[in-house]
Design a protein around this nucleic acid. Structure first.
Lengths: 200, 200
DNA sequence: GTGCGAATGTGACAAGCGTCACCCGGGGGT
DNA sequence: ACCCCCGGGTGACGCTTGTCACATTCGCAC
């Protein structure tokens, strides 16, 4: 019997996935969590074999939970199930030592199958994504990422400067760097590109 | 027996929702569709009582399907199930005569309940959203919407001008109008605001 | 110490952006 | 015939962006 905790913020999807997994005779859904913090608490209380979690959740993200599990050396496997086919996410997930990484647009049967594989100690990584992941590295450094994120929210160079205690000019330099590295024409395009790759 | 067709582009969610609905004794899932065009074909072939559909799908969106159903006066109810709590979407859905509009972060049991209500001829609209929907009207006109959408993709005023066969200056005027109406500081913020409200 | 390389700043320039006041031409009312 | 509204355009103004070449400072390696 594989004992599972399910974390996913959209209630309807959570309920549906739970129903789906409960149809399997060798899988038992111990509980579900609507956000990252609840998931973390339930994880410690229920001690499941496997945590199945989304990435984007209020509070803790799925990636952050995976990092904590690894840091505390808990005997719990983590499977990420997410909408986003972003190589950067997969990469960070692998760095956090997750057992599986599936996309929500993979067939539903894959989930139970992946659960069994991971429970046996194997890995279940979405195949197309696995290829892309190591092909293209994130060219941005921390500052560039940070500045690009704020610029993408509509803030001007001046706004960002005050917010980060840097000078107006420096911000523009970083932004220019980022735009160049990404081969974009302006901050908006750069933001979109970076976001799409999961480099945020 | 309520005969249902389910349209949703994410395979895993599709499978899970299908499993969920099949647990109900009075509901039968006739089939599922992975995008809007398939959904439209299956709709005509299977003649279900109710179509449960996502909004954002490749090909036809759920809203467009609802509009077609109404235009052709098919005896099929439509229930929209979506992630997006955007008042503008609900409004367009109501204009298209849908029977129900639920959010994916409503509890899973609501879906079956809504199906029954709509099948009986009632309406199932997410309550909080219903309030907001009529409170704030979309202030943008067609040109502004169009221009703002392109600007949000990172295109410059010049790019947009050539694309729409308008002058450089006119584009900037429209953009300025849109920014003003939305109370934004620049195109990026304006784009984000409009998008968030579902005015796109 | 000397030297190198990050990280941050500066100043200048051209291009793009946001705003505004105003112009033009074609429908519709009346 | 008149006016007025509407979609579109013009030109000018000042500010923001994107780029680049060149400082400054600090820390680390040797």
């Amino acid at each position: 019997m594989i004992r599972v905790l399910l974390a996913e913020d959209q209630a309807m999807v959570r309920g549906a996935l739970s129903a789906l997994l409960n149809l399997e005779s060798d899988i038992e859904v111990l509980g579900t969590a609507a956000d990252g913090e609840i998931a973390w608490r339930e994880l410690q209380r229920l001690k499941p074999d496997v945590l199945v979690t989304d990435i984007e959740m209020p509070g803790l993200t799925g990636l952050e939970i995976a990092q904590r599990v690894r840091r505390q050396e808990l005997p719990i496997k983590v499977i990420i199930v997410t909408t986003f086919a972003r190589p950067g996410f997969l990469r960070r997930a692998l760095d956090a030592g997750v057992g599986g990484y599936l996309l929500k647009d993979a067939p539903a049967e894959n989930l139970a199958e992946a659960l069994r594989t991971v429970h046996r100690g194997g890995r279940a990584i979405d195949p197309q994504l696995a290829l892309e992941a190591w092909s293209e590295a994130d060219p941005l450094n921390d500052r560039e990422r940070q500045v690009l994120r704020l610029a993408g929210e509509g803030q001007s160079a001046n706004d960002i400067a005050t917010q980060l205690n840097l000078s107006h000019g420096t911000i523009r330099n970083y932004l220019s760097e980022a735009i160049g590295k990404l081969g974009a024409a302006n901050r908006i395009e750069a933001y979109r590109l970076a976001r799409q790759k999961g480099w945020l």
